[in-house]
Design a protein around this nucleic acid. Structure first.
Lengths: 235, 235
DNA sequence: TTGACACATCTTGCATGCATCATTAGCCTC
DNA sequence: GAGGCTAATGATGCATGCAAGATGTGTCAA
């Protein structure tokens, strides 16, 4: 379901992949309007593949199609963000538990390496690098659970959360990077000890802490307008 | 994301809803081919809304579209079924825990009523009625968790599992109905006691038991051919 | 000035037609 | 007779055109 190989896969798949990237990377703000004809012109295809791509993104929860009105980038409310984080906590906690139960799998060494590099990045104050490593860390945890369906649902969830954007905001502005890195270490230790119960508990704490940090940042910013900015600049 | 109000919602939504129903209710066997033109003729619309509906079902995981070849009802492998059950266990266990934490919500009385009726149905040997009540029970647990995103992902998961069909097979052929009913009672008691930890554990046990029952039935049947039957009868 | 109403405009929803590619049946060759 | 090749067939992928509905604006009346 996730786009892996994207070479020569038809216009519709290309468009969907591109739009997903733009939304998660923040090039398209929540609330922004996605005009079929404009996208068709931009991508050099007709409206049909654009429509199909938008439909797909809708069922993935990244855009909302108002019939006869238009398509808009999802602007999750505060409540929805909290709900999504609750599900994230559930899935990721379970993934940590499953990972621990699997013992010495290839992902374990990758996770160790990831934590090593994260320590360096934090020590060097390289936040951009740390953000990238955070993504890799959570991805390793999920894939290390060895359940492709869990991975699928998790990826969809992260898209719905627009997580990439949030983790960026949160880590850059809350000063939580060292704490987050430390929590990653603790979870890794529990996994290395094959202590699934502890790994799950620590991971759930970690997710809640990052959620709290994000909420603090959002509240501090006043923020709602920052999440669902106006479609077009004021005249 | 789930079709709730389906009146006058455009051809595409109608078609998607219809096809979902046919697949989950078993009118369309896994592996069956869904021809765009045939469906277009049957529904009295053009291929366009059919295509969009199929695309949507694909991202929901209920059908597989082979480019330039055709669309087929998903035929989950044994491995995929087990993976999906693992996710089911995670989500539903968490839902039971969250439900218990919410205390005296409207769903609790509905759950009590459901268990009462289930007892009656089992006592009367009315399996069809019990199957319907089982669906309602699990739906109440999920909605009672009070997290709409959790509900969304759960519904999608059940569609991917073709759960409706499986629970039917499993309960009808394993003789597990009384045991299942008893487990429902125990979970309810834990929820009533607001013991989230126990509710989660019991629910996870319950899901695993139903998974095991299904696997036994599948193995006993020889079964793979029963899951992904041939597209067309042999000549 | 404010309110409602009608209309122009822009959007998507759907129908239709053509191009492209996978499949398969038949034929030819070995 | 078996295997490979070719062409017909049927499917989907995409382009385009038209229709229906929603939104915003301008006008008119109170």
């Amino acid at each position: 379901m996730q786009e892996t190989a994207s070479v020569q896969r038809g216009a519709q798949a290309r468009v969907a992949h591109q739009l997903r990237a733009r939304i998660t990377q923040g090039n398209l703000m929540p609330g922004a309007v996605l005009s079929e004809s404009a996208l068709a012109q931009e991508f050099g295809v007709s409206r049909t593949p654009i429509r199909e791509a938008l439909k797909q993104l809708q069922t993935e929860g990244m855009v909302v199609i108002k019939p006869r009105v238009g398509t808009f980038v999802s602007a999750p409310s505060r409540l929805e963000i909290n709900e999504l984080f609750e599900v994230k906590e559930i899935l990721e906690g379970a993934a940590a538990r499953l990972f621990a139960a699997r013992g010495n799998i290839p992902e374990l060494e990758l996770l160790r390496e990831n934590v090593r590099r994260s320590d360096e990045a934090v020590a060097a104050g390289d936040l951009d690098r740390f953000v990238a490593l955070v993504h890799e860390y959570h991805d390793l945890i999920i894939t290390g659970a060895g359940n492709s369906k869990l991975t699928q649902h998790y990826r969809t969830l992260m898209n719905q959360l627009l997580y990439s954007r949030f983790v960026h905001m949160s880590l850059r502005r809350s000063g939580r990077a060292p704490q987050s890195d430390h929590e990653h270490q603790s979870i890794l230790q529990a996994i290395e000890a094959r202590d699934g119960v502890t790994a799950e508990r620590l991971m759930r704490d970690h997710v809640r802490a990052s959620q709290q940090a994000l909420m603090d940042v959002l509240n501090f910013d006043g923020a709602e307008h920052r999440l669902s900015g106006p479609t077009s600049p004021a005249p």
